[in-house]
Amino acid sequence: MQQQTLKVEGMSCGHCVASVEGAVKKLGGATAKVDLASKSVSVEFDAQKVTLAAIKDAIEEQGYDVV
């Protein structure tokens, strides 16, 4: 398993947390933990099952900006 912390702009509430964490979980092989205070998402993923680019795309599809 690999770990990566992403800076994500636009998150501000519990709905944002659920949206991002749910989108990443749907990919399979990945989990996410959102920290609203630092505007970051810590992801843990199996590189054999999902790419970091796919995780970033899933977050951006929810309407947030990965910077």
Rank of each mutant, 00 (worst) to 15 (best):
K56F: 11
G14H: 09
L27D: 10
A18V: 03
M11K: 01
V20D: 00
D65C: 11
K56M: 12
T51I: 11
K39L: 13
D35I: 08
A37G: 07
F45R: 04
M1E: 09
V43I: 15
V20Y: 01
K33A: 14
V34S: 03
I59M: 01
H15D: 09
E60Q: 15
G29A: 13
L27P: 10
V50H: 00
M11N: 00
C13L: 07
Q48H: 07
E44Y: 00
I59T: 01
G10L: 07
S40W: 02
A53M: 00
Q3H: 07
Q48Y: 03
K25S: 14
M1S: 10
G29D: 12
G22W: 05
V20A: 00
Q2K: 15
G63L: 11
V43P: 02
M11D: 00
D35Y: 11
Q4T: 07
S38C: 07
C13H: 08
F45Y: 15
K33Y: 03
E44V: 15
S38E: 15
C13M: 05
G63E: 09
L6R: 03
A58T: 10
V43R: 00
S38P: 08
V34T: 06
A37N: 08
L52C: 05
K7F: 08
A54Q: 15
K56W: 09
L52S: 11
Y64M: 02
K39G: 14
H15Q: 06
E61N: 14
D65Q: 13
A30Y: 11
G10S: 06
G10Y: 05
V34H: 00
G10N: 02
Q2P: 04
S42F: 14
Q48T: 12
Q4K: 12
V20W: 01
